[in-house]
Write a protein that binds this DNA or RNA. Structure first.
Lengths: 196, 196
DNA sequence: TCCTTTCTGTAGTGATCGCTACAGAACGAT
DNA sequence: ATCGTTCTGTAGCGATCACTACAGAAAGGA
């Protein structure tokens, strides 16, 4: 019927993802995106809508790939403690992987926003809150099941580990190594409530 | 000799500081700055040089006022443990103070940067590294003095508390309350090495 | 009062922002 | 081969970016 697309849409999306991951939503210009995606602006707009929708799609892709390890650990590990410990150690590995930008995209892609991208800022904030809520719910499961003491403050414990993970992301962007973050993970696990 | 300045330079600097603190270096435009400072661009440039120098001066002011509590705690408290515990609790208070933007300016003002402000990004990164080094040195002091066991890993402990503080800053910007952060601070202190 | 000096507001500079009109190129269908 | 459709590259849209030329206003010294 008509002319076919001459670039790989998945490949282009992954390159846009990494640009947003590295520099954030607002600081990544269309010129930078078209450069790393190796396409011209009309192709970008035809394939992805606009900058905002490209970011949303990149973010969805991020959560389904690089950022999926947290949901996986929460679903697969038998206890909240093992799940969170695994999340911390996988974060140490993932956040410092030399094959892609450091840190977590959801934590760092929309920190410095002008009035035009406050919706993106809010969107990521809600995702961070959802991640924290997932930690809390997993902990509450174990409290209900008797794995953790009934007086366990699940919300505070979840907020604490969320903060540690966010701090690890910042440190990774500042140049911390995997070993550095693993030592932070080990120390963070010392706060886990005793179950004797 | 000549006409006098008609605005309060200190007041204008404080308003610029808060704008940079809230939105970050790059996302805060000259238009936004002149608006909150209630001056016109030529007055801004005459009084502060350019955007970059205004930011640097605002940052210096931040470190000497809102951000001075960490250095104060390290200098005044008798032990590293008491200093860090005080830092965590003062951060919980300071980062959620309704009288100014939430979180820490040094942690969050230059996260999303384009190529033109990579020097600002690096400048803040060095300040974060310096803060972490100050924690490590205070811990090492106590190791040398015998307050902490000789096998204490000062660098790891410092990195861990730096990460917690950075996480608390992110949580504060996401809407966490002072009580929320105090509970995180309490949990974080459970990682402190035993001294029995 | 007049002069000099510095500040102030208006009104722009060129560069870049996100985005798109337009025309030619490349495909499948006929 | 010709047509219709969709993609592609060039080139440029209005808006905003950081920044400034310029002229009038306001101060102190004569």
């Amino acid at each position: 019927m008509a002319r076919k697309r001459t670039f790989d849409r998945d490949e282009a999306l992954d390159r846009a993802l990494r640009a947003f991951w590295r520099h954030g939503y607002e600081a990544t210009s269309i010129a930078e995106l078209t450069s790393v995606m190796d396409i011209r602006p009309p192709s970008l707009y035809a394939a992805f809508g606009d900058k905002r929708r490209l970011f949303e799609e990149a973010l969805r892709r991020y959560q389904e790939s690089y950022g999926a390890f947290t949901a996986r650990a929460l679903a697969e590990e038998p206890t909240a403690r093992q799940a969170i410990e695994r999340i911390l150690y996988e974060a140490a590995d993932e956040y410092t992987d030399p094959d892609h930008p450091h840190g977590c995209m959801i934590i760092s892609a929309a920190v410095n926003c002008g009035p035009d991208s406050s919706e993106v800022e809010e969107d990521l904030r809600l995702k961070r809150e959802a991640a924290k809520a997932a930690l809390r719910e997993r902990i509450e499961q174990d409290v209900t099941a008797g794995v953790l003491p009934p007086d366990t403050d699940a919300a505070s414990l979840a907020a604490y580990y969320a903060a540690v993970i966010q701090g690890m992301s910042t440190q990774a962007r500042d140049g911390a190594t995997r070993d550095d973050l693993e030592r932070t993970a080990a120390l963070a696990m010392r706060a886990w409530p005793a179950t004797t």
